[in-house]
């Protein structure tokens, strides 16, 4: 589904990703773990098309299309979703209006009629309750004044609503208490199937205890320094990142 080849990315002339090769097959959950400043967030931003990154060389193919020149909203339409490490606040816009604008934008690009309001409301209410969110959550301003946990749950809510093919989860577990982590993990696990793929970016083991990855890569200084299955997580947790540089 996603094929990153020979990718080098720099920001302000500093090389952040160095000659990276990474493939994520359909139906796979791939974890990328690494210390602070290893280039993990840059990776998710470059996949989703955030401006401000200088692509030195290499390619990113999504379903056999090179997406590096594709606009970010187009990538979203193709089925790439990024859960933000720091979700953005948009004052004055109700959460549900934002969600509806998003889903209808994607439908429009795919030549599908706008979503039926009743069906839409039923669906988001269902998702919200699954994530343990009160109904009023949907009428509050988009992320404005939300707690850290609520913001992260809101990312998962959007994921479950937009039903992407590739989910890039950028430190979805940071700033979460244990209960919220469980709720979020459950949401992710339930969504995961043979048709979609996950790129899970994290520092810690704890998320990966709930969402078992098929592959684990340790990322340092902009490249993969070690790969393995989920047993690698335990080894990493014992030895620390220092062992893998």
């Amino acid at each position: 589904m996603l094929k990153i080849s020979n990718l080098s990315v720099s920001v302000e002339n500093k090389l952040i990703i160095n000659n990276l090769d990474l493939e994520i097959d359909e139906g796979k959950k791939v974890a990328v773990m690494g210390p602070n400043g290893s280039g993990k967030s840059t990776l998710s931003n470059v996949i989703s098309g955030k401006p401000g990154y200088d692509i030195k060389e290499g390619s990113i193919e999504f379903e056999d299309t090179d997406i590096l020149k594709v606009d970010p909203e187009e990538r979203a339409t193709m089925g790439i979703f990024m859960a933000f490490q720091y979700p953005v606040e948009i004052p004055g816009i109700a959460n549900s209006s934002f969600l509806r604008t998003a889903i209808n934008s994607i439908r429009k690009k795919n030549n599908i009629d706008p979503v039926n309001t009743r069906i839409f409301l039923e669906e988001i209410n269902q998702i919200a309750s699954k994530l343990g969110l009160d109904k009023s959550f949907l009428s509050r301003d988009m992320n404005a004044g939300f707690s850290g946990g609520e913001k992260k749950k809101n990312e998962i809510l959007q994921l479950l609503l937009l039903k992407p093919k590739l989910c890039v989860l950028d430190e979805i577990d940071s700033g979460l208490d244990i209960d919220s982590l469980k709720v979020i993990s459950k949401g992710i696990s339930e969504y995961s199937n043979k048709k979609n793929s996950m790129l899970i970016i994290t520092h810690y083991q704890r998320l990966l205890d709930h969402v078992i990855p098929d592959e684990v890569h340790i990322f340092n200084n902009g490249k993969i320094v070690e790969s393995g299955d989920h047993n690698l997580v335990k080894i990493l947790e014992e030895k620390g990142y220092k062992e893998f540089s």
């Binding site: 098309g49 955030k50 401006p51 606009d71 970010p72 909203e73 990024m82 953005v88 604008t101 994607i106």
Partner: peptide, 18 residues
């Protein structure tokens, strides 16, 4: 209007104009 707000919307499939 911050770049972050704009990019967040784009990532959800919303055009820059919208």
């Amino acid at each position: 209007i911050s770049e972050e707000q704009l990019f967040f919307c784009l990532q959800r499939g919303i055009t820059e104009e919208d």
